[in-house]
């Protein structure tokens, strides 16, 4: 979570809020922030650290590990209408890559800004070419896009 906390300004610029969730109590969140995270990130964690001791939230999101009684590393991108646009779930031993979340958010924001008229091909980043889905593009993506452009 320190990786996300550290890059929080990037998310703020994109108009993104963050909520982190684990089974720890909010009191433990306070201790973790004060004793460890604030030593990795200046000012400590700037977003809400939610407590899900019952696992109710984790269950609703399908990331509750019944045998261990913890949440898996689930990451959800939720748009301004409250619709889930992306889900990534990792088993506990491997961490997420923050830059990939940012890339996906930027891509979804771009698609949303075009009213869905444009689509972001594999590996899309701001500045790269988008696709304009429509009858003219069927079977002709190869003419304008290839995997080396990812």
């Amino acid at each position: 979570m320190s990786a996300v906390a550290d890059k929080y300004p990037v998310l703020q610029e994109l108009g993104v809020e963050v909520i982190s969730v684990s089974v720890d109590s909010h009191f433990v969140h306070k201790m973790w922030n004060e004793h460890e995270l604030s030593k990795m990130v200046e000012g400590g964690v700037p977003f809400h650290m939610a407590s899900d001791q019952s696992g109710n939230v984790g269950r609703a999101y399908g990331v509750w590990d019944e045998t261990q009684g913890v949440e898996m590393r689930g990451r959800f991108i939720i748009d301004p209408d409250g619709i889930i646009q992306a889900i990534e779930v990792l088993a506990p031993p491997v961490g997420r890559r923050f830059a990939e979340s940012v890339r996906q958010i930027q891509a979804f924001q771009h698609v949303r800004a075009t009213g869905g008229k444009e689509a972001a091909p594999a590996g899309w980043e701001p500045g790269k070419m988008t696709l304009k889905p429509g009858p003219d593009l069927v079977g002709r993506v190869w003419e304008i896009w290839n995997p080396s452009m990812e």
Binding site: M1, V4, E17, I19, V28, M31, P80
Partner: peptide, 11 residues
Amino acid sequence: KWVLLCFYPGD
């Protein structure tokens, strides 16, 4: 607003 919701195993 856009929301990034992150679950993790534990503090």
